[in-house]
Design a protein around this nucleic acid. Structure first.
Lengths: 160, 160
DNA sequence: CGAATATCAGTGACACTGAAATTA
DNA sequence: CTAATTTCAGTGGCACTGATATTC
């Protein structure tokens, strides 16, 4: 398997993954651009809205480190995200009673309210983008993307 | 509207499109991060590599404006991209003989050479990511993403 | 003249790393 | 003391807008 193509530029397999990469990037950019425009009036960006959603879905206040892990970004970056949310009163830091090194982040009532609103906005935006697909196709797309993102056995970890 | 918004609403029912959006973003970030690491040694970034590929595929030298349109970015941004490529001698500006307002961008021999190399690198990276899918599934994914990106008439109201 | 083309200047978004402070 | 957690400081990537030549 993995018929390692010698003629990389003419291999159909090559073109396939390369094309997927292109289309994936394009879809993401379009989605991001659209959402940025929708969210701006609410004082949110694409990234901060995502953070707010994640915080809102969390069953309990999250620590910065956990948030970073969930977002797949560096802890320092999570700090800045929380800064941004706190600055517009959509989230708040609280001391963690069980560990004074930690900080717990909670969504404020305003944050809850906004989440509800942007949930609908986002939905329309997403429908605009994904509306080209029928429901069955949407399901397929979700399944395929989820499969991509699923952690799977890897050789040679990038352990430093 | 989640009036009974209790804590543990992970809501697997949160709209299909919302989940697609999440997975799409995740896949993009993973891809981007992986490629950035691969490309850095060559003095390229995710975006400049894309520009170089597009220039390399063009049958003839591209004008900045056309490049911007192809990239779906502002002309001013395309200028910066070309700056970056020119700075590392992978592309060059040329006067457009037919219009002195315009600039034509061409890939240098070094650029060609590098394109060939990163083509292979990129392939490995993409296989790493998309390898979770079989060839048939890859084809499906490409078809679905392409359908998303296809320009289509605006519509109000949804299928449901 | 108005329109198109590219560039200059400044900014915003979002991620990174490395170093420091606090606490376990 | 070592390790974990967060934050500070600085930087890199990549896009944007508005203003400014230059040329059509």
């Amino acid at each position: 398997m993995t018929t390692t193509a010698d003629s990389a530029t003419t291999d159909p397999q090559t073109d396939l993954v390369a094309q997927i990469a292109e289309e994936l990037a394009r879809a993401f950019r379009r989605m991001r651009r659209g959402e940025m425009k929708e969210l701006a009036p609410f004082g949110l960006t694409f990234a901060t809205a995502r953070v707010l959603r994640i915080l809102g879905r969390a069953p309990e206040p999250m620590r910065i480190g956990d948030l970073a892990a969930r977002l797949e970004i560096a802890p320092r970056s999570a700090t800045s995200m929380v800064d941004a949310l706190e600055q517009v009163s959509l989230a708040e830091r609280r001391p963690d009673p069980s560990d004074r090194r930690s900080v717990l982040v909670v969504v404020t009532p305003q944050g809850r309210e906004l989440l509800d609103r942007i949930g609908r906005t986002r939905l329309e935006n997403a429908r605009e983008l994904f509306g080209a697909l029928g429901e069955v196709q949407q399901g397929q797309l979700l399944a395929l993307l989820s499969a991509l993102n699923e952690p799977r056995p890897h050789h040679q970890g990038s352990v430093a």
